[in-house]
Amino acid sequence: MTTTAVATRKTAEERLPRAWNLGLHQGALELRQFFRQREQVVFTFAFPIVFLFLFASIFSDDVQGAGITASQLYVPAMIAAGIMSTSFQSLGISIAIERDEKVLRRLRGTPMPPSVYFLGKIWLVLVTGGLETIALLIVGTVFYDVDLPGDAAGWLTFGWVFLLGLTGCALLGIAISSVPKSGRSATSVVVLPFLVLQFISGVYIAIDTLPEWMLNLGALFPLKWMCQGLRGVFLPESAKVLEVADSWEYGRIALVLGAWCIGGLLLCLGTFRWKNRRDS
């Protein structure tokens, strides 16, 4: 009896479940949990839509010399902010809470590979970020005269800006989740930097009205480049004149967002904690 048990356990070690498949299941579970919290779903999706409605309705004049309205300017800006809110903000807060409520510790007590947890979060963020973007695009095209890209190249640009931006922000969210000491303080710790970034990255305030030092500070983070890339995708070429460099600077956007993906990954690997500081 004992010997057979030992023998079967040996072969079992080689058959530890594979991370990729487990990650798919983990993602399905994360989504199920997310969509069952109706309040959270409504507010997560409604927030950027309400803000788009407010800003685009308040500021709707033509922008001088750019051939667009201020409303049109707000559509890509809010899509970028929506991507960051579904990734950076929601992960930063929810992982801090899960850590505080010992959900992470329990997972750490199982043979689950750590990558499965992160894969699950990535699926969650991809789906929620995608749905948020679709919702904002519908509002933008129907009410604020924004045109969808007419060619494959436009959609391709949109695709990589979306994916690189989402990934970079998600990794930053995972990293910041280790900062708050408890789940209760997580919202304040995560929301303040996000709010500041939205002001200095051209989401609420057009970049041509921001002081230079603010622009330079904003340019260190992904949000500014996501906004810029999405303006390039959804605004006419004539709107280039509003950019600092009079161009969409796709090469630089790819470089900064890619750097944030790699840097964010290193930051996560170096700082991620499965337990609260007081529990070690």
Partner: peptide, 15 residues
């Protein structure tokens, strides 16, 4: 991971 597969844990404060 193989070791964690063989040890079951029930903590005092779970969620």
């Amino acid at each position: 991971r193989a070791w964690r597969a063989k040890v079951g844990i029930v903590w005092q404060d779970e969620s």
